[in-house]
């Protein structure tokens, strides 16, 4: 197995093939010639593959543990409630895949067919793909550096037999690094409808989310809007509301106003959500009347509207 040399400047950088660590690397001449900086041929292949996918939505957040996977899973469940809508959920959190557990698919394996990897289906119209399906035990750690993770993401986009789908939802790890750059790059020719950014109300989370927004601007990714998760908690005993993660700086609302991006909604903390995720059930069917369910539903509706009738300025960016 070839390893990338330590301190590899990266094939796309000006130092490619010329850095001190490039000496002795078998790819030195290739990098120095500039061929390494040419666009990856996989981008075109992925574009072809993605022709059967109508809408692509990325779920992002700078901060971890704010509910990206929970939201992605419920967005998928919500969209798939209409049985004529084909939904696919792709988990590119390579080092911490939570989607298999949340979707109740732990221990499932991916099957290989002539047309590529087959996703694992929760319902007839809801397929899921995650690195979790490729591990042999739940204790297995994927201790990979960037380039190997990127290879896996490329395979997920190019080699999975998704079939004709209406919505592809991509759940990402926290941060603004390899996985994010790769998925945006690989999908650059295929057009991403937009991204939903998840945050919790407190400033420590918002400060990471601002970074994520600046990332979206840098890579020219349209923002569908922001979802504030875990916003407020209603005590099951006395029914009074309290703020567990206090919005000391005005929460997502103030940030969205400040940065002029839409706030899609606020989802309150309901202990039932965590339990549904642990048991792999859809929260919508477990607690159809919870205020959190209603909040989710209205957010999902807004996302659908965005995909069907994208605002004009977003179109310009992508044309």
């Amino acid at each position: 197995m070839e390893e990338v040399p330590q301190d590899c400047p990266g094939t796309g950088s000006a130092q490619a093939g010329r850095g001190a660590s490039c000496h002795g690397c078998p790819n030195q001449r290739l990098c120095a010639s500039g061929a390494g900086a040419a666009p990856d041929p996989a981008i075109e292949e992925i574009k072809e593959k993605m022709k059967t996918v109508k809408h692509k939505i990325l779920v992002l957040s700078g901060k971890g543990g704010v509910g990206k996977s929970t939201f992605s899973a419920h967005l998928a469940h919500g969209l798939a409630e209409d049985e004529n809508t084909q939904v696919a959920l792709l988990d590119i959190d390579i080092c911490g895949p939570s989607i298999p557990k949340i979707m109740g698919l732990e221990g499932e394996q991916v099957h290989q067919s002539g047309s590529g990897w087959s996703p694992v289906y929760v319902e007839d119209n809801l397929g899921v793909m995650s690195v979790g399906f490729l591990l042999s035990s739940p204790d297995d750690a994927v201790i990979w550096r960037g380039p190997k993770k990127n290879g896996m993401i490329k395979q997920f986009l190019r080699d999975v037999d998704w079939g004709d789908i209406d919505y592809l939802i991509v759940d990402t790890p926290p941060g603004t690094s390899d996985e994010h750059l790769s998925v945006v790059q690989y999908l650059s020719a295929a057009h991403i409808d937009g991204t939903v950014i998840i945050t919790t109300p407190q400033e420590v989370s918002l400060q990471d989310v601002r970074k994520e927004i600046s990332f979206c601007h840098k890579v020219k990714l349209p923002i569908i809007g922001v979802v504030e998760n875990m916003s407020g908690f209603v005590c099951p005993k006395c029914k009074k509301e309290s703020q567990i993660f206090p919005p000391t700086t005005g929460g997502a609302e103030a940030m969205c106003q400040d940065l002029k991006i839409p706030l899609l909604g606020k989802v309150p903390l309901d202990p039932q959500i965590g339990k549904s995720c642990d048991t792999g059930q859809s929260f919508f069917s477990e607690a159809p009347d919870s205020p959190a369910t209603l909040a989710y539903r209205s957010i999902i509706q807004r996302i659908q509207e965005f995909c069907l009738h994208p605002p004009r300025e977003e179109k310009l960016i992508n044309s």
């Binding site: 603004t176 690094s177 990332f215």
Partner: peptide
């Protein structure tokens, strides 16, 4: 700037 994103891939982070 505090809102600036550090959009780096692995090798740069390692350094």
């Amino acid at each position: 700037k505090p809102d600036e994103a550090v959009v780096w891939r692995g090798p740069k982070k390692n350094a």
